[in-house]
């Protein structure tokens, strides 16, 4: 669902902290017709121009809080990510991305489902790796985007 609309098209920008470009950010939405408890959020498959950025290099900014790692996000068991709300995905990539156009391959993994599934016990012990399609029931294929880098906001 919403294949072509999961990333805001003007949202790819480098992230500058203390004068250093530490990575890049993307504004993202739910790949579903509803929100869910934030804890269910399991990270992203993100690949830019052939380079993949694993979940341990990603942090997630939602609900007015500073970016959190996905290890922290999974403990947000009473916090909800609402359907209407855009979140910002921060990706650690020292030096950032080059100016111009980039090819992103992208998939969201959220362990939300219709009730009990055969994979439940396994996913408690070993959550699926984003990009496998698991935990992406409404948008099970990786989606490719062509996005142009926007100048970072001045701090």
């Amino acid at each position: 669902m919403f294949e072509n609309f999961l990333i805001r098209s003007d949202s790819l920008r480098n992230e500058v902290r203390d004068g250093k470009t530490v990575g890049f950010t993307l504004a993202v939405r739910h790949a579903n017709y509803r929100g869910c408890y934030l804890s269910l959020h399991n990270g992203y498959y993100v690949e830019v121009d052939g380079t993949q950025y694993a979940t341990d290099r990603q942090t997630f900014e939602i609900n007015g809080q500073a970016p959190r790692s996905f290890d922290e996000i999974r403990t947000a068991v009473h916090e909800h990510w609402n359907y209407d709300d855009e979140a910002v995905l921060h990706v650690e990539a020292p030096g950032g991305l080059a100016p111009g156009e980039h090819t992103l391959r992208f998939q969201q993994s959220v362990l939300a489902a219709y009730g009990y599934l055969p994979t439940d016990e396994e996913w408690v012990k070993n959550p699926p790796t984003p990009g496998s399609g698991a935990g992406s029931d409404k948008t099970p294929e990786i989606v490719a985007y062509r996005l142009t880098l926007t100048e970072p906001e001045k701090n």
Binding site: S39, L40, V77, A112, E121, W123
Partner: peptide, 12 residues
């Protein structure tokens, strides 16, 4: 209403 049984992540 829904039913997401992995909400607590440490158990079903």
């Amino acid at each position: 209403v829904g039913m997401d049984v992995l909400q607590f992540r440490d158990h079903v």
